[in-house]
Amino acid sequence: MLMIKAVARAMDYIPSSSDKSARNLARRLGWFSVALGALQLAAPHRFARALDFRGGEPVIAAFGVREIATGVGLLAARDPAPFVWGRVAGDALDLVALANGFFDSRRRGVVLLALGSVAAVTAVDLICAQTLSADNKRRDDTPPDYADRTGLPKAVDQMRGVAAMNGQMPRGMRAVPWNAHAGEART
């Protein structure tokens, strides 16, 4: 039961976080960048061995520095959008590097897995970057107040129920009310 609940929460069917903005996603991507970059910088040889990219350690370490820089920028910046676009550019570099090493590698399955993972992360980065840019554009506007756009001629409470169906529902659109006819379904 706990596992089902955990999965449901993870999938956000029952959301637990109250901050759902793209800025929050950007912050999470920032932490991801820092963590990945630190791993790449600390143990480039492990990545090189796993992918069979012999002699690729310096490039992997350099990519780690790039990841950390982007991540720190993302976490520190007032406007994260440019840094998320920076991540998108970095993803493109990763994809080129992986594709470049694919044919020389004896562990092509691992390289393919890495390519798929980077492609998925690229998609998330791209979504986040696009949303942040759109949000920024909208933030430049003064949001209008549509409090006078009622569309109704009188106060809402006076209009409530003026078109009530009173049981005269079209065919196939009826539901069973909870309390109106307890124990008796409408026909």
Binding site: S17, S18, D19, S21, Y146
Partner: peptide, 22 residues
């Protein structure tokens, strides 16, 4: 907020901003 203000004007008794609330 602009859309939620229009919703409230037209009869929404409660509004939920899904970026801020669960």
């Amino acid at each position: 907020d602009d859309r939620l203000s229009m919703a409230k004007a037209g009869g929404a008794d409660e509004i939920i901003n899904f970026e801020k609330e669960d």
